Amino acid sequence: MAAGAELFRRNGYSGTGLKQIVTEANAPFGSLYHFFPGGKEQLGQEVIRTSGLAYIQLFDLFIAPAPDLVSGIEAFFAAGIATLEATDYVEGCPIATVALEVASTNEPLREATADVFTAWIEAGTEKFAKFGLSREAARTLTISVVNSLEGAFVLCRALRDTEAMAVAGATSVDIARRLQDEQL
């Protein structure tokens, strides 16, 4: 499944073939259908849900231990910049990559991406609320951060430049400060 996640992140769902997946996984072709009788679509759903839910750990890694909300958000976006630079703009979000491809053409995969985004919003809401934001404000901030991060990954990969990620991070910090000020 890790091979599928990596290939979907880099090539998208449509750009990844079954032969590529089994070759990358160093597995016999028949094993794919043994573990995923529904073929590529079932594998895609599993990859989306598994790798997507693993990204929730980023909230624990960057937001939860931060001394304050702004520092956590800055660390979150700095990590995005570091990832892009370290991978020569190849790494992005596998969920967004697939979601953009399949939102209107493949309902099971659309549902899988929606489930992941919903889980991210719930996790982010919990983490941001611990900094004193109301649940409503924490949810607004989470949706804004996810929107900004996903959009920034698209622009950065296309432009091969991290300016969009830096701007997205600064904008998210501004939104966080405004929401915190409203809570006072």
Rank of each mutant, 00 (worst) to 15 (best):
A66C: 13
D68M: 02
D68L: 02
D68I: 07
S71K: 10
S71D: 12
G72Y: 14
G72F: 10
I73K: 05
E74F: 03
E74C: 02
E74K: 15
A75L: 06
A79R: 14
G80Q: 06
I81S: 11
A82I: 10
T83E: 09
T83R: 14
T83C: 04
L84Q: 11
A86E: 15
D88E: 14
D88N: 15
E91N: 09
G92R: 07
G92M: 03
G92H: 02
C93D: 13
C93F: 09
P94K: 05
A96G: 15
A96F: 13
A99M: 06
L100S: 05
L100H: 10
L100D: 12
E101C: 01
V102E: 06
V102A: 01
V102D: 04
A103D: 08
S104H: 12
T105P: 07
T105Y: 07
N106S: 13
N106P: 09
N106V: 03
N106W: 05
N106K: 11
P108R: 06
P108T: 09
L109I: 04
A112Q: 00
A112P: 00
A112V: 00
T113N: 03
D115Q: 12
V116P: 15
V116R: 05
T118E: 09
A119D: 10
A119E: 09
A119P: 03
W120C: 01
I121A: 08
I121R: 13
E122L: 08
E122S: 10
G124P: 01
E126L: 08
K127W: 07
F128C: 09
A129S: 14
A129G: 14
K130P: 01
K130I: 01
K130R: 14
K130C: 08
F131D: 04
G132N: 06
G132M: 04
L133I: 06
R139V: 07
R139W: 03
T140E: 15
T140S: 11
L141C: 11
L141Y: 13
T142H: 03
T142V: 02
I143L: 08
I143P: 03
S144Q: 12
S144P: 10
V145K: 00
V145A: 06
V145F: 02
V145T: 10
S148C: 02
L149C: 07
L149K: 04
L149Y: 10
L149M: 07
E150S: 04
V154T: 10
C156A: 15
C156R: 00
A158R: 14
A158S: 11
A158L: 11
L159P: 02
L159E: 14
R160M: 02
R160I: 00
D161Y: 02
D161A: 00
T162N: 10
A164Q: 00
A164Y: 01
A164F: 02
M165G: 03
M165D: 03
A166G: 12
A166R: 15
V167G: 02
A168M: 09
A168D: 08
G169V: 06
A170S: 11
T171C: 03
T171S: 11
S172K: 11
